[in-house]
Amino acid sequence: MEKHLIFMDIDGTLVARDQKISERTKSVVKELQQDGHQFYVATGRKYSSAFEMARKLSDDTQVIASNGSVYTVNEMLHKKRLSDEALRFVYQTTTDYQLPMFFFGEHTIFYTQQLPSYLQKNDQSRIGNDEEDFCSIDSMETLMEVSQRIVNGIIIADDQEDKLKEVREILAKSGLLSVSSSHPNNIELIPLGVNKATAIHAVRKELTVPQKNIISFGDGMNDLEMLQASGIGVAMGNAVDELKQHAQYVTNTNVEDGIANFLLDYFK
């Protein structure tokens, strides 16, 4: 069979809340890698967290991180970052609306307001991992001092969906950045013109793999462009309904080995 590129979102797709990859999924992926197929994790996580998860899957698994802002191909790291103008606009907007803000470097989390308890406890969340470097942002001046280190960001606010919707519209209309959401409680902030799909296009062009041989798995609306950029777009059984409507296939949930089941059916 022709060689394929397979892209997998992490949270809600490759792993469940316990952040563990099932042994069955690991086995299927490694077997397919031995047959010459190439696998990527494709996530909104920062690079170091995504890389750690990729290595839990296998040493050969590659990385698309920060919603396409950072990716590896042929052992080379490619990166785009939020512009200074975008950072200023986001910081001012979130300050005006009193919303907490997280900015991500390759290894560092920069945060406004108070650091949430789930990060203080080093919880294995979609933001944190075991070896975090946190930096508080208490002013526009402080933000600009570290701007060159920032790749992307996220606004997270539980039970404030109306406010988030209003802020998302303001940010999208600015023309300074791209916005997405993996959950109703967040707004993901990405360099203008960048998403998981743009990274996929760059990777497959570099590796000369036709689009028909691209398979992608996701569960949130920040995976929509990725599924649309693939020859075979697969929504998890636990995915949001809107994503399922745009996917070519729907597999089992992330806790039912949905990725492994689909790949076994597809390749064998």
Rank of each mutant, 00 (worst) to 15 (best):
I6W: 04
F7Y: 12
M8V: 08
I10M: 02
D11G: 02
G12D: 05
L14P: 09
V15N: 02
A16L: 08
R17Q: 08
D18Q: 05
D18Y: 10
D18T: 11
K20V: 10
S22E: 00
S22C: 03
R24W: 00
T25S: 00
V28P: 01
V28A: 01
K30V: 00
L32Q: 02
L32E: 05
Q34P: 00
F39G: 14
T43C: 01
G44C: 14
K46Q: 15
K46S: 04
Y47M: 05
E52Q: 15
A54N: 01
L57T: 00
S58N: 00
D60G: 00
G68K: 09
Y71N: 05
Y71V: 10
T72W: 01
E75G: 10
M76L: 14
L82F: 06
L82Y: 12
V90D: 05
V90C: 10
Q92V: 09
F102G: 09
E106D: 13
Q114P: 01
L115V: 04
L115Q: 01
L115Y: 09
P116Q: 10
S117L: 11
Y118M: 10
L119Y: 08
Q124V: 08
S125D: 05
S125V: 11
R126P: 00
I127Q: 02
G128I: 00
D130S: 13
E131T: 13
E132C: 10
D133T: 10
F134Q: 01
S136H: 12
S139W: 06
L143N: 02
L143F: 08
Q148D: 15
V151Y: 04
V151R: 10
I154T: 14
I154Q: 06
I156V: 15
D158Q: 14
Q160G: 08
K165V: 05
V167N: 05
I170Q: 15
S174E: 11
L176H: 05
L176E: 02
S180C: 02
S182P: 01
S182A: 13
H183N: 08
P184T: 15
I187T: 06
I187K: 08
E188D: 15
L189Q: 01
L192E: 06
V194L: 04
V194I: 15
A199V: 03
H201W: 03
A202D: 10
V203S: 04
E206Y: 03
L207R: 06
T208W: 02
T208S: 14
N213D: 04
I214T: 07
G220T: 12
M221K: 02
N222R: 04
L224T: 10
E225K: 13
E225V: 05
M226H: 05
G233Y: 08
G233L: 10
V234W: 02
M236L: 14
N238T: 07
V240W: 11
L243T: 11
Q245E: 07
E256M: 08
E256D: 12
I259V: 14
L263K: 06
L264F: 07
D265Q: 13
D265E: 12
